[in-house]
């Protein structure tokens, strides 16, 4: 319950920000970090809790983003309904991809590669079909009205994003206390052992992918409505895939607050670098790549493992156990 209180307090505090922060520049900067936290947490459900490392989460993001855009532009369907469809399609795509890959026992690196390939296939498809606007992309008519899921003031988008992010974090909070969450951890740590004690590993991984795809799809819907433009590279390109896993890894995979921590740490670093270096193309990504390498080298459990909170200790203990296990195996 204490963790829920902390979570609610953080998001309540974030919710008040638009009333306190006068400048759109800072509000936008915080929004970018919140968006990263959302996709990082979505990735974290499959990657951190269920142990399925995906390199192609842009697949679900793009499907959600295109769903709301195509429904609106080609069929004239209200984007609020489009948001539901986008989320559902993201979840469906997650389950479908899981069903395809897990049925054949693809694990670890193979799984990462197949997700990457699927995102790439969808990028090419979106590039070649007329109803997605092909390479030119798809443009949504400006109509700033809450009924059209468009807002005059930046704060409207901010609260929408905050609500989605809060829903995602709340789900993970629930997951940590639920039977499904415990089963996911068991599958992550030792799939064969979990199966041996009666966990349906296939179903558990499928559910993890569906939940992960749901929030990734919703993030896609938000992106479309916020920028009112989409093209195949934005939707299915590697940027979102990399950012999602980077945020989770920097913050601490398999932890509730990790993605939030990672998102704000990364964006702070990015802002600082931009101030120091100016607008050099690529500089941001060099820093992100370096952070990724350094984190994997020296702090594979993420920033959250530094904390003295109960969570950090649990992470450390788990790692110590694994190290001992490995030593026993090597001996």
């Amino acid at each position: 319950m204490k963790r829920l209180a902390v979570l609610v307090a953080i998001f309540a505090g974030l919710g008040l920000l638009p009333l306190l922060v006068g400048s759109d520049f800072w509000l936008n900067a915080i929004m970018l970090a919140l968006f990263s936290a959302l996709i990082g947490q979505a990735w974290n459900i499959a990657g951190g809790y269920a142990g399925q490392f995906s390199f192609g989460h842009a697949l679900f993001f793009g499907i959600g983003a295109y769903a709301v855009a195509v429904l609106q532009v080609d069929l004239g369907i209200n984007p609020w309904l489009g948001m539901l469809v986008g989320g559902a399609l993201g979840a469906g795509a997650g389950a479908a991809l899981g069903w395809l890959t897990f049925r054949y026992g693809l694990r670890g690196s193979y799984f990462a590669l197949v997700t990457l390939a699927f995102a790439e296939v969808f990028r090419i498809l979106a590039n070649s079909t007329p109803f997605t606007g092909a390479g030119e992309g798809i443009l949504i008519k400006l109509n700033p009205h809450p009924a059209m899921l468009q807002f005059k003031a930046l704060s409207g988008y901010y609260w929408l994003l905050l609500a989605l992010t809060f829903a995602c974090f709340l789900s993970v909070w629930w997951l940590e206390r639920s039977r499904l969450g415990a089963q996911m951890l068991a599958v992550r740590d030792n799939e064969d052992a979990a199966a041996a004690v009666g966990v349906d590993a296939f179903a558990v991984k499928l559910k993890a992918m569906a939940l992960s795809g749901l929030f990734m799809g919703l993030a896609g819907v938000f992106y479309t409505q916020r920028y009112l433009y989409l093209d195949p590279g934005l939707a299915f390109g590697p940027t979102q895939s990399v950012e999602a896993l980077l945020v989770a890894i920097v913050g601490g995979i398999g932890t509730l607050f990790g993605p939030l921590l990672g998102a704000f740490a990364l964006h702070l670093l990015g802002e600082a670098a931009q101030t120091a270096l100016g607008d050099v193309p690529g500089a941001n990504m060099v820093i992100y790549g370096t952070v990724l390498v350094v984190m994997v080298l020296f702090l594979p459990r993420g920033l959250a493992s530094l904390g003295k909170a109960g969570l950090g200790k649990a992470g450390g203990r788990r790692q110590g156990l694994r190290r001992r296990k490995r030593r026993a195996k090597d001996a």
Partner: peptide
């Protein structure tokens, strides 16, 4: 290792 080589390629 996958992550480190991914980071390396980004850098």
């Amino acid at each position: 290792i996958l992550l480190v080589t991914l980071g390396l390629s980004i850098i």
